[in-house]
């Protein structure tokens, strides 16, 4: 009885350390698994991150190209509008009536060609 008791006590006494070791190992295994899982996940994320990083870079490059093209186009537009500036004003293809009354003129009023000059003296 006493023996059994002791055994039982021994069992009780030795059982917890056994159970503790096996649960520690279990915890370590689980932790290791989680760790590995996290590493795998991080790695996978790094791979996708690298992928999206590359994508971002190529998108940025595209946008830079777009901006470059726009600058070139604006430059061309500016040059063209400057070149076209003397063309603004009256349409050379049209005939405009010019008032003759009282304007200083030379030559007969019946002349077939009338040249009007709008000008100033300075």
């Amino acid at each position: 009885m006493a023996n059994r008791n002791r055994d039982a006590r021994d069992d009780r006494g030795s059982a917890p350390p056994d159970g503790g070791e096996s649960s520690m190992a279990g915890v370590i295994r689980v932790a290791t698994l989680i760790g590995v899982g996290v590493l795998v996940a991080m790695n996978a994320k790094m791979i996708t991150d690298t992928g999206s990083f590359k994508q971002s870079v190529s998108q940025l490059n595209e946008r830079i190209d777009g901006v470059n093209n726009r600058i070139v186009a604006l430059g061309t537009e500016m040059r063209n509008s400057r070149a076209a500036a003397p063309q603004r004003g009256p349409d050379p293809a049209k005939v405009y009536p010019i008032k003759l009354d009282g304007a200083p003129a030379e030559g007969p009023a019946s002349a077939p060609i009338v040249i009007a000059e709008f000008s100033d003296f300075q």
């Binding site: 063309q87 004003g89 009256p90 049209k94 005939v95 405009y96 060609i113 000059e117 709008f118 000008s119």
Partner: peptide, 20 residues
């Protein structure tokens, strides 16, 4: 001149045809 759209000088009209 303003009505004709002339903004600079000299501006010539030969029988009403604009020469800038």
């Amino acid at each position: 001149a303003d009505k004709l759209g002339v903004t600079g000088t000299p501006a010539f009209f030969v029988n009403g045809h604009f020469l800038s």
